[in-house]
């Protein structure tokens, strides 16, 4: 436990010293969200056809919380883990009796911390600037937040386990990130996407995470279907990670 806490603390400090990751996980989502806010404001579509009938910023704020969570999972984590393995950091940790659970546990803990920071930043910005209301069902939202973070952390660990180098992880991570960002709920609302793009979105974990987070935030209740899909990603990621994780 002491190892886990110490390692998590060091990893958090290292995270803040990694400019590329910081940009993609925190700065970029915040900037994009503020640009969207300037463009669309928070007045709902009068016909209620797009943005699920709510104000654009009410729609985007939870969606961008999802984007932060996904950026930590698919860019931050895999690049970090693959780099550690490539350079022999994992070997070094292992030789000092650090268990795989401690290494992965610290990564999950870092993911949570960054996700929470992202949530606070984004929510504060749009609540103060654009009259976004806080989550209507905070308890359910918190559960959705935890599931989402765990699901993306497990996908991140899986990518970090199967991708051989930090460069490969960065390439795959950025590609996935941009595709997800544009089609899966953090870009144009799904209602205006073509059928093909909507189909692409369906296989992207982010699209499900976005709805899972939005529903309790907007007061639409708990979305069980999306929860099961997120849980599926979580379980598949975790099982495959255990299978593919290598120290060197």
């Amino acid at each position: 436990m002491r190892s886990l806490i110490k390692l998590t603390w060091v990893e958090l400090k290292l995270f803040t010293r990694e400019p590329v990751t910081l940009v993609f996980t925190l700065a970029l989502p915040l900037i994009l969200l503020l640009v969207l806010a300037e463009v669309f404001g928070n007045t709902p579509d009068p016909e209620g056809k797009i943005y699920r009938g709510v104000g654009p910023m009410d729609y985007y704020t939870p969606a961008y919380v999802g984007l932060v969570i996904s950026a930590v999972g698919i860019i931050g984590l895999p690049v970090h883990l693959a780099g550690y393995r490539e350079r022999g950091v994992l070997r070094r940790l292992r030789a000092s009796s650090v268990s795989a659970w401690t290494v992965l546990g610290s990564q999950v803990a870092v993911s949570f911390t960054i996700a929470i920071i992202g949530f606070v930043l984004l929510t504060a910005a749009t609540m103060l600037g654009y009259d976004v209301h806080p989550p209507k069902e905070p308890g359910l939202f918190a559960i959705a937040f935890v599931i989402s973070t765990l699901a993306f952390a497990s996908l991140g660990v899986l990518l970090g386990a199967v991708l051989p180098t930090a460069r490969a992880a960065q390439l795959v991570g950025l590609l996935l990130f941009f595709v997800m960002m544009f089609v899966a709920g953090a870009g144009p609302p799904p209602e205006v996407l073509s059928q093909t793009l909507r189909d692409v979105a369906k296989v992207m974990p982010l699209s499900h995470i976005v709805v899972l987070l939005q529903d309790p935030w907007l007061g639409f209740g708990w979305n069980n279907a999306r929860f099961l899909i997120a849980a599926g990603f979580l379980a598949a990621g975790a099982l495959l990670s255990v299978k593919f994780f290598r120290w060197e």
């Binding site: 110490k6 290292l14 022999g88």
Partner: peptide
Amino acid sequence: SALPDRIKVWEALDLFSAF
């Protein structure tokens, strides 16, 4: 073997003594 690029010398010693 190696350590993370941006870890400081004292942080590495402190971390490894905690293991």
